[in-house]
Write a protein that binds this DNA or RNA. Structure first.
Lengths: 140, 140
DNA sequence: GTACTCAGTATCCATTGGTTACTGTCGGCA
DNA sequence: TGCCGACAGTAACCAATGGATACTGAGTAC
């Protein structure tokens, strides 16, 4: 479980309604938004969850992630490396071996992400039910 | 049908390495993945956080979200309505008024999402530092 | 010398997100 | 009577991201 010193976002949110937005999550120019955009891309969250169990190599990740295109996996991993979420080690062997390991920063993210994952698994049923109900209405 | 007596995702993850992937998050055909993709789109998370404080109308959301295109906001809200995360009420007034309210399902998501938001705010500094460090290396 | 492994690139195409302009209704104003 | 503005969107078009498939390069096994 990751303990976080910052004031809770939700409290910021409350006060932020009335005052000028300054350095907050909802300012599109705030770097925090960039962080959210990053986590919210298609694969980053899954990679963090996979690596939270230990280092993996490229082809292992590729296998676990289902149908990810290698180009996209490379992009994702490079971005994550740049963001300090993981490290990339190349072993000078043949065939080549490249190992990806979560940093402390990456590990600190896996807790919150796992919570989202749990929420998703716990609520798929309700969501698909809501979808079929919605689609059953002629107007929609 | 989706069985939902979910053990913690992270535990699943541990065991899942050795056994056949079946109904798990990393199977691209599992509906849970679709849920993650949805939450992981560009705006849904922000909308949930904004609405967790109470109902808002279209133009309020638009204002708070910075520079979101109206088309994209409409798409996002319709999808969320379809997924049962929020309800949409139209008041037959002039000028028209449309109010968006989180459902219980939506509220249940705001906790985990706020944790992610808190993480982001707490770690922007480390991330941007990692980025500049990465970019300072000539090879990258 | 051919085949195979791994970790990617290169090339091209599909889907999503974004920008700008426009619609429809009605009340207020001149 | 005609025009303006508010609100909640659509319509049409363009940019960026994601995805599928084929190919590269080094060296070891056959």
């Amino acid at each position: 479980m990751v303990t976080i010193a910052a004031p809770r976002l939700i409290d910021r949110l409350r006060s932020q309604r009335t005052q000028a937005p300054e350095g907050d999550l909802f300012d599109p120019d705030c770097p925090t938004r960039l962080v959210l955009d990053r986590i919210g891309d298609k694969w980053t969250a899954l990679v963090v969850l996979l690596l939270s169990d230990g280092p993996m190599r490229f082809s292992e990740l590729r296998g676990q992630l289902g149908r990810i295109a290698p180009k996209v996996l490379t992009q994702t991993l490079r971005r994550m490396e740049r963001d300090g979420l993981l490290t990339r080690e190349v072993f000078a062997e043949v065939p080549p071996r490249v190992q990806y390991t979560l940093t402390d920063l990456g590990h600190s993210l896996s807790g919150p992400l796992a919570a989202i994952g749990d929420w998703a698994e716990a609520n798929v049923g309700r969501i698909t039910a809501a979808q079929t109900a919605y689609d059953a209405v002629p107007g929609n």
